[in-house]
Nucleic acid binder design. Structure first.
Lengths: 225, 225
DNA sequence: GCCGTGCGAGAATAGCATTCTCGCTCTTTG
DNA sequence: CAAAGAGCGAGAATGCTATTCTCGCACGGC
């Protein structure tokens, strides 16, 4: 920070290009190292999560596993919440990709939507087996303290669903008066949250809600006109 | 516990009635005191919550406010989570009562359902002003660690909605093939969770989902045809 | 009046996130 | 090459909470 309050405020941005390039060159290597370290933390955390099936790990565990240090961790993350957020975003982004790929296989817009809903449902339920992203169980915590970041994290999925929904609308497959983006948001929320509270199919009670049911519900509602 | 391993196992239940009554008399007073203490803890916690608008209070705060002791607290509750659970259950039960009362005022079954949905939505959103039960913000946490207890806590509301839904079904106002109880569960979940992530109406984005929208969505779905 | 149970006061323990201190090791730079 | 400094590992120190434990007191039934 050698240069502060030296030039006029408006000149703050007119650094000569060569200088910017020089700085970048000097910076690049550092950035690469940093990215690599962040990646190691992320991988370690992800491994621990899928291993223990919960997000109740300690920062120390992540540090140990990634063979780095606490100091380093806090130098790269603002805190545990940022790590979670990163994992969360990542998981949602990958899920969005996966779902998008699954819907690619033609069918009417509505059918593609159905595929998306059902896959999202499966992806969001609590570890039916093991390796599932499990990104759903810390979502609530984040929702409380960082609703804004969560919105950002949801963006890829929301975009995908909005696209599918819009396609359906264009094909005239939506009930008139339905706003695609709104419907997409509501559907996503419903699917994700319901999946979470849908316990593993071991309970006897009436609960075990299925992907089909949820699709039926979102698509047609319950009212009979 | 003066009587143990004295009679045959099968005789464990044939205590003379007078003895049971005597024990109960001796017990009654203790129970009353305990109930009163529990009540004080609950009241204190509730007060703190509505005061600070969050459930991030310490047990110590509750203890101080209720003019009791930590020892006493842990003698009456298994831990902080039990306290939260108790408050949660209570809030949900009261909300169920309130909603039931609101729907009492005639109308077709479907209209009553609508009233219920919209009121539930309002009750669940994050403190638009202040005094709202706020029972929604620790629900997620509990969902993770005590899904079973949460189910129990939800029971009153679920029962209410199931009733309303069944009435609608009997009146032929539901789409054929809809199972009332299932639909009730799905609707409740959708309303409660959506309300939670529906930020206060200060954001510019497309989010602010309204009670009407949510009703439309649950009742009619998005699919045309 | 005597005993057990409940309880207040508050110290002790423990788990975890976050910060801080030391020295070491490369990379940069003159 | 040597001095300067940035990044980092190791791990101690802090701070906040929940939870447990220890003492000694008081009250209701005998």
């Amino acid at each position: 920070m050698p240069q502060k309050t030296n030039a006029s405020p408006s000149a703050a941005n007119d650094e000569p290009a060569w200088k910017q390039r020089a700085v970048e060159r000097s910076t690049k290597t550092a950035r690469l190292r940093a990215e690599q370290r962040v990646e190691r933390f992320l991988d370690a955390a992800q491994a621990i999560i899928t291993e223990k099936g919960t997000t109740d790990f300690t920062v120390q565990e992540v540090v140990d596993r990634s063979r780095q240090s606490l100091r380093s961790f806090y130098q790269h993350f603002d805190g545990k919440h940022e790590l979670l957020l990163a994992l969360f975003e990542d998981a949602l982004r990958r899920s969005a990709d996966q779902i998008r790929a699954a819907t690619e296989a033609h069918g009417t817009p509505l059918e593609r939507l159905k595929v998306a809903v059902q896959l999202l449902f499966e992806l969001c339920r609590p570890d039916p087996a093991a390796q599932r992203p499990l990104f759903t169980d810390f979502a609530p915590q984040l929702l409380l303290r960082h609703p804004n970041e969560v919105r950002v994290a949801h963006a890829p999925l929301l975009t995908l669903f909005a696209e599918l929904m819009t396609d359906a609308a264009d094909a005239g497959e939506l009930r008139s008066g339905v706003k695609p983006r709104r419907a997409a948001a509501l559907t996503m929320q419903t699917v994700m949250f319901t999946a979470q509270s849908a316990a593993a199919p071991d309970d006897e009670s009436a609960h075990p809600i299925t992907a089909d049911e949820i699709w039926e519900f979102c698509a047609r509602g319950f009212s009979g006109n």
